[in-house]
């Protein structure tokens, strides 16, 4: 069983996931060099799928490489670049290599990238892709053709609690949870109150209990990074006071770190949050420092599917819902 799934089901401790940087050239050593500084501090790592509509080494190739190098990948699949045939083939193909965690995204539009002339696909949308992934896990393609044996998959999705219409985002999380998403990474956000109300809504409608909600924080080093995200990344807005706080700080890199630490502490304090997802734009060891200052341990969780010691009466036979 994947560690992500184990933790999402047991909730025995907070989950830590991270974004893997994009790879363009090189070989497996190139991937290893990017992995080594973060491997010990995370439970699972996102293999992204042409993020921000820029072509990079593919989601499945990076997911397989991460698996080969001893990490647990989360293979993102976006709807922008591939139709239903290609998306299903990638997932089933990567599963042959032990890529279990898959995460469905609609994907930024092609106009957000460096090839705005590209044809956009969007044959499926995000919620539909979640349901298609769930079908694959149950041993059938969308067409109904059987897959035997069924690939072992742990299906997830993303949601943006900060995107308008904000009151509807809870419904949308439920739509994806109902379609089979069992973990959900949330968009980067700098509005703690908005996150709070989203999480509270997900607790109220039952999503938080069955789908592990993972808010995202991002490690930045400069004032420009915040303005860039605010101005250029669709769906991310950074309030003016927050930007002013960083721009006016005497030690901008340290103040940026403290901001991320505060946001992460706040997110993890919310009832209904299962862990944290970290995007690292600093690559200076800050990810390790963040995990350490949050007192998060990512030691191997006990495997509930392993035979339990009969002499230990505290070990329940069935996983209990919390």
């Amino acid at each position: 069983m994947s560690r992500l799934r184990q933790l999402a089901e047991s909730r025995s401790r907070p989950i830590v996931t991270a974004e893997f940087p994009s790879i363009d050239g090189g070989n497996l050593d190139t991937v290893k060099a990017k992995l080594d500084p973060i491997l010990a501090f995370v439970d699972a790592i996102n293999a992204t799928d042409n993020p921000a509509a820029h072509a990079h080494a593919s989601n499945s190739s990076i997911a397989i490489a991460l698996k080969m190098l001893g990490a647990e990948p989360i293979m993102q699949v976006v709807c922008r670049d591939k139709n239903r045939l290609a998306a299903q083939a990638d997932i089933v193909g990567a599963a042959l290599f032990g890529v279990v965690n898959v995460c469905a995204l609609t994907g930024d539009d092609v106009t957000a990238g460096d090839e705005p002339q590209a044809r956009r696909v969007f044959d499926l949308d995000g919620p539909q892709l979640v349901k298609v992934m769930s079908g694959l896990a149950e041993g059938r393609y969308l067409s109904g053709r059987k897959i035997s044996p069924a690939p072992e998959l742990f299906v997830g999705a993303v949601e943006n609690p900060f995107g308008p219409p904000q009151h509807y985002r809870v419904e949308r999380a439920k739509l994806k949870s109902d379609a089979g998403a069992r973990f959900m990474q949330l968009q980067i956000g700098y509005q703690p109150l908005v996150l709070e109300s989203f999480i509270a809504g997900c607790v109220a409608n039952g999503v938080a209990a069955r789908t592990a909600l993972l808010p995202t924080v991002v490690l930045t080093k400069t004032a420009r990074a915040l303005s860039f995200m605010h101005d250029n990344v669709p769906g991310i807005s950074v309030p003016e006071p927050t930007r002013a706080r960083i721009a006016g700080a005497s030690d901008i890199p340290e103040e940026s770190f403290q901001l991320t630490l505060e946001l992460a502490r706040h997110a993890l304090s919310l009832d209904g949050v299962a862990g944290i997802h970290i995007a690292d734009f600093r690559h200076d060891g800050s990810l390790a420092r963040l995990v350490s200052e949050l007192n998060l341990s990512v030691s191997e969780p006990t495997d509930p599917s392993a035979p339990s010691d009969p002499s230990d009466p505290s070990e329940p036979n069935a996983p209990t819902a919390r």
Binding site: G126, N160, P164, Y168, R172, L175, P234, G235, S237
Partner: peptide, 21 residues
């Protein structure tokens, strides 16, 4: 919708409720 989405708004909706694209 430029992404022809059939199941609700994507995550890229602007603060003013306008389209990302």
């Amino acid at each position: 919708c430029p992404k022809t989405l059939r199941n609700g708004p994507c995550g890229g909706v602007r603060d003013d409720g306008h389209c990302e694209v």
